[in-house]
Amino acid sequence: MAINILIVDDSAVMRAMILKSLRMTGLDIGETYQAGNGQEGLEALNDNWVDMVIVDINMPVMNGEEMIGQMRENPATADIPIVVISTEGSEARLERLREKGAAFIHKPFTPETIRDTMRTMLHLEEND
């Protein structure tokens, strides 16, 4: 089944790099949506069926941590798998994100890391 993905990052180049990596994974990617900050991300979630959210931390208007917090409080979005892709180095913040069930990919990333993380999150075997 195709998965719909929302990418939230304030850099259009970074969103393009993430999207390109996702398309390289060979996974069945359905619709993809993009947003430039957490606020826009929540609006996109409201308007569309999304199976997975990929989100940065440092963004203007609303940062990723706040967006994830609001997602988890809303029953409609509470269970959507989340991958944080960020340069974040603070242990405390990473721990808070893990507690909210988010997976973490450090920037700069390789497309292979994105594939491996997606495989783990979707519970796919190595050779699928």
Binding site: K20, R23, M24, T25, G26, T110, P111, E112, R115
Partner: peptide, 15 residues
């Protein structure tokens, strides 16, 4: 190598 693979949409299975 990584740059060529990135431009050609190819992932490394293992390294």
């Amino acid at each position: 190598l990584k740059k060529i693979l990135w431009k050609n949409n190819i992932l490394l299975e293992t390294e």
